[in-house]
Design a protein around this nucleic acid. Sequence first.
DNA 1: CTTAGGG
DNA 2: CCCTAAG
Length: 611
Amino acid sequence: MFGNVEGYGDMFQDSIFQTRSGSLSSTNQIGNRVAYKLVRVAGDGTLVPATDEEMLKVKDLLENNEPDMPVLPEPIQTEKYIPDEGSPSQFLQLENFEGLFQSETAEAYTENMNSRHESKEELMYGTQMLFALPDTKFQISNELPGNVEQVQSEVLLSEPIIFSSNRCSMNQSTDDLYATGSRNEPKEAALSTAASKPEVSRVAGEICLDNLSIRALQETFRATFGRETTCKDNRWLKRRITMGLINSCVVPTTTLTINDNKLIGGDQDAIDAFSKDTLDEERAIESKDTPSSPDCIKGHLDDFGHTSVETFVDYYSGNEDFDGEHRSAKRVRKPTRRYIVETSETGERQQSDESMIPSKDQSSIQAVSSGGGVVVTRMVSLAGSRIQVPYVSHVRRSRPRENIMALGEFHSKSWEVKATPEKGNLNLSPSQLNNDVNRVPAVNSAPRLVQKEVSDKDHLKPIFTEVDQDMMEPELLDSSGDSSDDNCVDVPITQSEIRRKLHRAWTVSEVEKLVEGVSKYGVGKWSDIKRLSFSPYTHRTSVDLKDKWRNLQKASSSNRMGGGLKKHGSMAIPSHIMLQVRELAQKQSPISPVESKARVVKRSRSRNGFL
DNA sequence: CTTAGGG
DNA sequence: CCCTAAG
């Protein structure tokens, strides 16, 4: 392990940061483990490094002390980066910090990852929180005996955590840390994007990157980050992948720190320098054409032509000393599909967990309490991490559909549950996802349903033709208050709605019609019933009829014996209908009577020699 | 495509 | 409602 570390350390022996780190280490107030980076969230969700002016504004804001600043200052939206939940692997790392922390922060990190947010939530206001993790496995507990005490006494909640050590491995690491703070040398800086939730898959399974070929590594990279890489540097790839998997990387160290919502240790120069760093770094990413590991670094523009944070991470982390080989990198969880269950009018939703494959602009909506108010944010995946950005809808929504309630409910109740942007969803274009409350028919995200609807009701056409056929039947109007919905695709379609047909409660008259149809055409003649009795009801398929009939039967039978086991949500079905149902059901499927009768007949026949 | 039945 | 297997 150390062999590796030292090997990486050698990489930096010649770097200009060596000197820098030397000078820095004299201060002992360096090597901050937590740094903050201010960025602005562009309209499309990309992160733009703050300009000098913005930095100034934020600084002012912070100095004016707005602890509960619920809404972010206008031109400057900030992004907060929250360290990932304590996944085992990460936890391991964090354990190494124990003893260095003696603050809420430390506790939050090492004991209860979940409390982290609250503990230092204020720190995140107006700043982008960057979380630094050691890029190597520091053996602090064993190797940093002397400094711990001192450090502890100095470290306060939000103050930088100090690392100082004479140990070789430690020095290298801190060197790297310092180096990341130096400007004009993007290769040494790293951003940490971390998620607010643990990525489940990390718990189980490990990837042994050692044995992977370059190609395999590239493939893994693609699987991890959702895009290709041309990098041939297997070391870079390994580290990058591992980092992506555990959401850890090192952070540029700057003199900008925040304590109790105030900037400390950061005079204007520092702030300016910081922002300058940021800009320089980004510029470097965009334009620098250096050799070494550059080809995998440069030019990772997102689909909007912006350099995304992911790019930052890619770039910087590529040069971080990162003992990926020994870190148990956990597998990326295979994309899972979200399965929405909507129940009757409430539009209640549930969802399974989501894909961890971080396609670039996966996003989902989430309500987040920020100080006083609740701010709607959406999740954006970056480099295997999840961050929240204020949600701004760029699309003008047309008339809300009934499912809008579901969305509201979602906001209010799914704090933890994240909306899941589709299965793997690598095939979704960012634009689609960005307008996550989109009206896009989502052609490739829900093949089955779309296909079905198209064939069923020719849904795509009615976009242009107004509601037509559906209108004749009066019942239809009241049965589906928004029947036009059915034909009007030009209505906001949330991800969930794409997958699942809108639930439409059966009306009494519908049921009556169904019963009538069954009695007329017989049970099982669903297509006939559909065609002859339900022609106006474009939204009831023969399968629906069948299902409903099944339910009716169930209800009628259980009604008889079980007593009043009626569903609360659904309207009570008139008993005379139930009676009809029962009769019809008995008539068409006289299981016990007919069967027994048939047997009797058989027997008698055989007895009579007919067989 | 239609049915039937499980999910 | 969704999904599939069978005719």
